[in-house]
Simulated assay, not measured.
Amino acid sequence: MLKKSIFSFLILLLTSTQLLAQKSFLERLKPDETNFQYAGSIGFLSAGAGYHFFKEKTALSFHIGYVPESLGGELTIFAVKFQYKPFTIKLNDKFIIHPFNPVIFPSYTLGQNFDFKFEKPKYREGYYFWSSALRLHLGAGSEIKMFNNPTSKIKAISLYAEANTNDLYAISWFQNRTSTPFYEIFKLGYGVKVYF
């Protein structure tokens, strides 16, 4: 299937540092990190690549996620995350913890039942004020980072957990807050990051 082929190609591209190192222009496009995530609002499984700014205090990353047909319908999800790491706890020379990392990201879902706008012939204008495909997420995560040998191409590896909610969940909770617990609007994801 075309979607699976595109997903496989992007995974290969994101993880192949040899491919990016062939030309100087491509060298500049080489990401500072790649990550693989389970759940967390951007698919059953997702992969991404990111760039660091301001001495690794902030990161901008691009993700593609996939939900298989067997888990409720085949979906492909794209997301662009902006993450801020305000605090660092150094355990020793090998380990540091980023205990609270705020994150904000839009996601766009491809699929037969998802559109940027609801079709006007079917619904009067303003009947649905949200997009079925586009979501804006707000959340936070924690990360533990282990540094590697300085001479290695991989500088560090980390494990992280991230909880987030989106605009539609937050509005739904606000309108039904007497019957819906606040924690139910959050989705949790787990992942691993590889730093170059």
Rank of each mutant, 00 (worst) to 15 (best):
K4R: 08
F9V: 04
L12N: 05
L13Y: 02
S16D: 14
S16T: 08
T17N: 09
Q18H: 14
L19I: 07
A21I: 11
Q22D: 11
K23N: 13
F25K: 08
R28T: 06
R28V: 11
K30D: 05
P31L: 11
E33P: 09
N35M: 02
N35Y: 04
F36V: 02
Q37V: 03
Q37M: 11
Q37E: 12
I42T: 14
I42N: 14
G43Q: 04
F44T: 13
G50Q: 12
H52G: 14
F53S: 09
K55I: 10
E56W: 06
E56M: 12
S61V: 01
F62H: 04
I64M: 00
I64T: 04
V67R: 01
E69L: 13
E69F: 11
E74C: 06
F78M: 06
F78R: 08
V80K: 02
Y84N: 10
T88Q: 06
T88I: 11
I89R: 08
N92L: 01
P102Y: 08
F105T: 02
G111V: 09
G111H: 06
G111K: 02
P121E: 11
Y123A: 07
E125D: 15
Y127A: 13
E143R: 02
F147Q: 01
N148M: 01
T151A: 01
T151D: 01
S152A: 08
L159R: 01
Y160C: 00
I171G: 09
F174Q: 07
F174C: 08
S179M: 11
Y183V: 13
K187D: 15
G189P: 01
Y190V: 05
G191H: 05
V192Y: 01
Y195T: 10
